[in-house]
Simulated assay, not measured.
Amino acid sequence: MKNYIIKLFSLILSIGIITGCELDDPEIEYAAVTELSGEWYIQYEIQQTDGSWVNPGFGYFTLLTSNTAANSETEMMVNDTDGWGIQYKVNVSGLSFSASDVTELGGSGNVTVSNGIVIKDGGFSTSGVVADSIYLEFVQPTDDPTVYRASGVRRTGFLEDEH
């Protein structure tokens, strides 16, 4: 029995030594839409019949942008977690994005997004830190043709910028 335990321990130790060899560092790959991906603090505005925009005073909401499972440079996921709670896929070209009558993934209807853009270092957080900004206009997945505008800045992670 003692001999069996020693052989088993030797086998485990041998496997540990063999698998403990140094390997090359893994190559770090980024998502295809890394520059567009992130967590954003946005505010909504509603387009009036005369074309002007009104801020209804809803406050700040969180918008998430990320790559799709295909990790393509031409598409991105947009997840409006706090506002309407909708998630949809948009077409990407550089730092611009749009979608024409795409299905909202929760099944609540179709979404149209226009004039979507991320501007590098184009905004300021609440504390005054320079941050990337995002802008988009959309029609939500209902029968209501109201155009909404969402704009804001990338989350910095600083406590004084949290909303």
Rank of each mutant, 00 (worst) to 15 (best):
61 F>M: 12
67 N>E: 14
13 L>C: 14
48 Q>N: 14
125 S>P: 00
138 F>W: 05
107 G>K: 02
14 S>W: 03
138 F>S: 06
86 I>T: 13
86 I>H: 04
111 V>G: 00
21 C>Q: 13
58 F>K: 06
147 V>I: 15
52 S>V: 05
29 E>F: 13
121 D>M: 04
53 W>G: 00
34 T>W: 11
35 E>A: 14
36 L>I: 12
46 I>N: 03
39 E>N: 12
102 V>G: 00
85 G>D: 09
89 K>Y: 04
49 T>Y: 09
92 V>K: 01
112 T>E: 07
150 A>R: 00
34 T>V: 12
133 S>V: 03
121 D>E: 14
36 L>R: 01
56 P>E: 07
98 S>L: 05
64 L>F: 14
24 D>R: 07
36 L>G: 05
75 E>D: 15
85 G>V: 00
56 P>N: 06
12 I>H: 00
55 N>Y: 08
91 N>A: 14
59 G>Y: 06
82 D>E: 11
33 V>I: 13
103 T>C: 00
9 F>H: 05
162 E>R: 13
5 I>Y: 13
115 N>L: 09
77 M>D: 12
76 M>D: 05
74 T>G: 08
37 S>G: 07
87 Q>M: 13
162 E>C: 06
148 Y>K: 08
46 I>V: 15
58 F>I: 07
93 S>D: 15
157 G>I: 11
151 S>W: 09
72 S>Y: 07
126 T>Y: 04
71 N>H: 09
100 S>L: 08
89 K>A: 07
163 H>Y: 15
43 Q>H: 09
126 T>C: 04
97 F>M: 03
7 K>W: 09
119 I>L: 10
63 L>I: 11
2 K>E: 13
15 I>K: 03
60 Y>I: 12
118 V>Q: 02
87 Q>K: 14
155 R>I: 05
154 R>Y: 02
151 S>L: 11
85 G>T: 03
77 M>P: 00
122 G>Q: 03
20 G>C: 04
118 V>T: 04
115 N>C: 05
20 G>L: 03
73 E>Y: 11
127 S>E: 02
22 E>M: 11
20 G>T: 03
106 G>V: 01
49 T>M: 13
134 I>H: 00
93 S>W: 04
52 S>H: 04
63 L>K: 02
50 D>T: 10
29 E>T: 10
134 I>M: 03
144 D>V: 11
71 N>P: 02
49 T>N: 13
46 I>F: 07
30 Y>K: 08
110 N>Q: 08
37 S>R: 05
86 I>N: 09
144 D>N: 15
30 Y>V: 08
72 S>A: 15
135 Y>N: 06
40 W>S: 01
139 V>K: 12
114 S>E: 12
54 V>D: 10
48 Q>P: 04
105 L>K: 10
117 I>M: 08
140 Q>V: 10
135 Y>F: 15
102 V>E: 02
131 A>P: 01
99 A>I: 07
22 E>G: 12
50 D>A: 09
138 F>V: 05
20 G>K: 04
29 E>I: 13
99 A>Q: 05
52 S>R: 06
63 L>T: 02
153 V>K: 01
19 T>E: 09
16 G>A: 11
63 L>P: 01
45 E>M: 11
112 T>K: 04
91 N>I: 13
119 I>V: 15
156 T>Q: 03
77 M>K: 10
133 S>P: 02
121 D>T: 06
23 L>C: 10
28 I>N: 10
94 G>V: 10
108 S>G: 14
